[in-house]
């Protein structure tokens, strides 16, 4: 166990190692952040099209959305990443971080769309009907009635999706990108510490702390959204 402790000291007292870890961590964060952003934006659009009242204008968009989510959810993320890297964005000099963000963003959008769709559909139809009976517009009904209630159901599942994306980005090391996972491998390799165990544990700790923080934030948001479920005092 003394060896383990020595390695910990070695890692934390070598500025290059710390630097590599932080670099890797930063890339992980960047890819995750923008992928999640794209996922939420595109996912919301898909969910809105999917749950919109059927009309002749929406037949094709609805069909496209269905196909899209089916394909994305029916194939492995790693394969989607490879296709993006080696086929679609196999352009010389194209920044790999952008390719990765697009790949994870498009993937996350399909899952996020399902989360949002589920959230919208879980709102009792009677809520919409109350708004209709009062003569409110579809817009007002959506923004004032349906969306605020849907969000309560969406937040916990969206939190899970965010966590999944952060962890899944670790596969970018398979296409040679220097993320947190890759940094750990690099530091542990023969030319460096020649031992994987400590850098791997430290990288795991980075992921764990990040995800713990996100879980905490999601719980707080959930709590503050739940105020209308609590019994208000007279």
């Amino acid at each position: 166990m003394g060896g383990f402790f020595d390695k910990v000291v070695e890692l934390f007292s070598t500025p290059e190692y710390i630097d590599s870890l932080l670099h890797g961590f930063w890339l992980t964060i960047q890819i995750s952040y923008f992928a999640i952003l794209i996922g939420i934006l595109l996912g919301t659009i898909i969910a809105l099209i999917d749950t919109a009242k059927p009309s002749k204008w929406l037949v094709i968009p609805k069909f496209i959305c269905r196909i899209y989510t089916t394909i994305i959810r029916g194939t492995p993320m790693a394969l989607q990443l490879f296709i993006m890297f080696f086929i679609i964005f196999a352009i010389k000099g194209f920044p790999s971080i952008i390719t990765a963000i697009i790949a994870f963003g498009l993937n996350s959008a399909a899952y996020t769309a399902e989360v949002i769709r589920g959230g919208i559909l879980s709102v009792d139809i009677g809520q919409t009907e109350a708004g209709m009976a009062l003569g409110l517009s579809r817009r007002t009904i959506f923004f004032k009635i349906v969306a605020p209630q849907a969000i309560k159901n969406i937040i916990p599942a969206l939190g899970n999706e965010i966590i999944t994306v952060i962890k899944e980005t670790a596969i970018v090391s398979m296409v040679g990108m220097y993320d947190l996972n890759m940094a750990a491998k690099d530091i542990g390799s023969g030319q460096n510490m020649a031992s994987y165990i400590v850098p791997m544990f430290v990288a795991a700790l980075f992921y764990l702390v990040t995800i713990y923080l996100i879980t905490f934030i999601v719980k707080q948001v959930e709590k503050s959204l739940r105020k209308s479920d609590l019994r208000a005092e007279e």
């Binding site: 009677g126 009976a133 009062l134 209630q149």
Partner: peptide, 19 residues
């Protein structure tokens, strides 16, 4: 036209997220 015809539902349908 709906504002001229109020509707009251079996399950009340008060809007849950509003006071």
């Amino acid at each position: 036209m709906r504002r001229n015809m109020g509707m009251v539902f079996q399950h009340f349908n008060l809007i849950n997220n509003l006071t």
